[in-house]
Every structure is written in C-alpha cells, then in structure tokens.
Simulated assay, not measured.
Amino acid sequence: MTRKPPPQHGERRCYLRGCRRPECVEANKRYCKQYRLATVHAPLRVDASAAVRRLAQWANQGYSHTQIATAAKINAPEVSKLLTGKQTAISLAHARRIQTAHGPSGAPYHAMTDAVGTIRRGRALHAIGYPIYRIAQDIPMNANDLGRLLMLEPATVRQSVANGMTALYQRLSGTPGPSHLAVCAARRLRWESPIAWDDDSIDDPAAIPDVTGFCGTDRGWWTHRIENLPVCPACAQAHADWLAAIKHLPRRERAILVGRAQAQAHNRGAAIAENARELLALGETYETAAARIGVSRNHLQQELLRHPETWKEAA
C-alpha cells in the first residue's frame, strides 16, 4: 500500500491542517473557486454597466458615496471604484442590491444651493456674540471653511450646510452669545445682527438689512445718524439721491426740508415704541400691535429696543 506524502506548503491539504501561510491560503482559495465553477452555474461576476448607471444617477443628485453605499447595502470603496471606472465587474449579489435599492434618503450631502441666506445667518450670529468655531460646531462644519464662507461670499453652498445653519439660526438668533470679541469683530466688518433681517426675506438676494425700519430711504439715513448707528450703503445712496434732488432749491428752503426730515426721523421711533407698549399692555401680540401701528414686526422690535421704557411711561 502506497502512503501519501505529507502535506507540503502551497497545498490545500496543508491549509486544512491549520497552516495559514500565504501560499497555503492561496491554494485553498484556488480550490474553492474551481469547485464553485464546477458546481454552480450562476456567474461569479457580472458586467457592472447597469449598476454604474444607477449609482451615477444618485451621485448626480448630490448624494455622497457613503450615502449611496448605505442605501445599496454595499461598501463605500466599491461605490467609488465603480463610479471612477476602476471596477468594471461586480458580484451578482451586489448587482441585485443596487438594482432593487430605493435610493438614498435625506438631504444630498453634495447638493448645492444659494449661499446668501447661509452667509447672512452666520454673520448675524457672529454679530450677537457667537464665535466662528462655536457656530461651526453645530452646523457641523470645519471652522476654517466657515470663516472662508462668511468672508469670501461664494455663490453656492452645500445644502446640508444651509440646512444646519438655518436650524442653528432659529435656535440662537434670539439669545446673545458669550463672546464680546465676536461682537467687536462683526461691528468692524459691518456685519448685521438678526434684528436687521426679516425671516421672510433673509434668503432673498435683493433684500437689504433693515436696521432702522426705513433702510434704503432718506429717513433711514437720518435714523442712522440720530441713533448713532453705522450708515448702511443703501441709506447713504438714498440720502445722496435726496440731496441731489433738492440741490436746485434756495438755501433757506433746503434748510427747512433738512430740519423737517431730521425731526420726523427723531420723533417717529419713540412714538412707535410708546404706542406699542400701550398695545402690548392691553394684551396685543407683537404681530397685531405692529399691524395696528402700520409697521413690520421687525421694525417694531427694533424701536422697542432702541427706545427703552421711561419712568414717565412706567408711572
């Protein structure tokens, strides 16, 4: 009787006896592949063209490779290889998963949207005392990237960043932040606080910050000067246009118009604040009080902050 020679390295017999040297592991893999080819008629790998088209459709919608991999229940590196052409064949199981997947859910990570509202909200939070790194933590976003976004004003921003900034702004815009340095930096950069923006227009590129309630008009310019506020470009332009329009009048008439405009801007804010407090004391809401006075809710709140209650009103 002939005895079999003992297993040698590089043979499957050696692998079955517990050896895990590379050549033995490779021999076992080779045997398993040959056994599968001989006994299983389904192909091991199929052409990936159909799967790539479906993956590319999701990628074009702005979804990241990680989001796509989660939806298709495969790993992210395989998604990357398929989309970049480094892999042209795919296992039958993975091909079925991709074709039957419903697609990624949630906001596409790479989808882009207009950056105006995001920039205005970030600057407004900085203007009331929130440092850049504190804002970036809750978006979430890298602090350096957020700083460049607020300073350089790009045209677009990722949708996920815009959504995070909107949620953070809704939560913090009514509460002052802890950093006085942030307030000073924003004032130096002339970034407006939340009081200058209305929630309905903050995303509108054509909207301007309304600090006085009349920004963009000559009355707004006078209110800036009376309240010792930095004059915004819209009010500066409106005042320049108004002066040019009355330039042809005699000096005395111009002086009368200037005095009248200054007095009107000086008295109106205090009157609005006094009337608003009376209506609020009677149970009116900010919205109904603003409607009865004939101003916006944002303007009403500005005047209440600008003209605190006097001892005569309290009495």
Rank of each mutant, 00 (worst) to 15 (best):
Thr2Gly: 07
Arg3Ile: 13
Lys4Ser: 13
Pro5Asn: 11
His9Thr: 08
Glu11Met: 14
Leu16Cys: 10
Leu16Gln: 09
Arg21Cys: 14
Glu26Asn: 13
Arg30Glu: 09
Tyr31Gln: 14
Lys33Glu: 03
Thr39Glu: 04
Pro43Met: 00
Arg45Trp: 00
Arg53Phe: 00
Gln57Asn: 10
Gly62Phe: 07
Thr66Asp: 12
Ala71Cys: 07
Ala72Leu: 08
Ile74Val: 13
Ile74Ser: 02
Asn75Lys: 14
Lys81Thr: 03
Leu82Ile: 02
Leu83Trp: 07
Arg97His: 01
Gln99Lys: 15
Gln99Cys: 00
Pro104Lys: 07
Gly106Trp: 12
Gly106Ala: 08
Ala107Val: 15
Tyr109Ala: 13
Met112Ser: 08
Asp114Tyr: 09
Ala115Cys: 02
Arg120Tyr: 06
Leu125Ser: 02
His126Phe: 09
His126Cys: 05
Ile128Glu: 01
Gly129Cys: 07
Tyr130Thr: 04
Pro131Ala: 02
Pro131Gly: 01
Ile135Gln: 03
Gln137Asp: 10
Pro140Gly: 08
Asn142Ala: 13
Asn142Leu: 10
Asp145Gly: 09
Leu146Asn: 01
Arg148Gly: 01
Leu149Ile: 10
Leu152Thr: 13
Leu152His: 15
Pro154Asn: 06
Val161Asp: 02
Asn163Phe: 09
Leu172Met: 08
Ser173Trp: 08
Ser173Cys: 12
Ser173Glu: 00
Pro178Asp: 00
His180Asn: 06
Leu181His: 10
Ala182Lys: 13
Ala182Ser: 15
Val183Ala: 04
Cys184His: 14
Arg187Pro: 00
Arg187Ala: 15
Arg187Cys: 01
Glu192Met: 12
Ala196Leu: 03
Trp197Gln: 04
Trp197Tyr: 09
Trp197Met: 03
Asp200Ala: 15
Ile202Asn: 02
Ile202Glu: 05
Ile202Val: 12
Asp203Thr: 12
Cys215Gly: 03
Cys215Ser: 15
Thr217Val: 04
Thr217Gly: 04
Asp218Thr: 14
Arg219Ser: 06
Gly220Ile: 01
Gly220His: 03
Trp222His: 11
Thr223Ser: 04
Arg225Asn: 02
Glu227Gly: 06
Pro230Leu: 11
Pro230Asp: 03
Val231Lys: 09
Cys235Gln: 02
His239Ala: 08
Ala244Arg: 14
His248Asn: 10
Leu249Thr: 05
Pro250Ala: 14
Pro250Tyr: 11
Arg252Val: 10
Glu253Ser: 13
Arg254Phe: 06
Gly259Lys: 12
Ala263Trp: 15
Asn267Glu: 10
Asn267Gly: 11
Asn267Thr: 12
Gly269Phe: 09
Gly269Glu: 10
Ala273Ser: 02
Glu274Gly: 11
Glu274Ala: 15
Arg277Lys: 08
Glu278Cys: 13
Leu282Phe: 09
Leu282Ser: 10
Thr285Gly: 00
Thr285Asp: 04
Thr288His: 13
Ala291Ile: 09
Ala291Glu: 05
Arg292Thr: 00
Ile293Leu: 07
Val295Lys: 07
Ser296Glu: 01
Leu300Ala: 00
Glu303Phe: 04
His307Gln: 09
Glu309Cys: 12
Thr310Gln: 11
Trp311Phe: 12
Glu313Thr: 07
Glu313Met: 14
Ala314Cys: 11
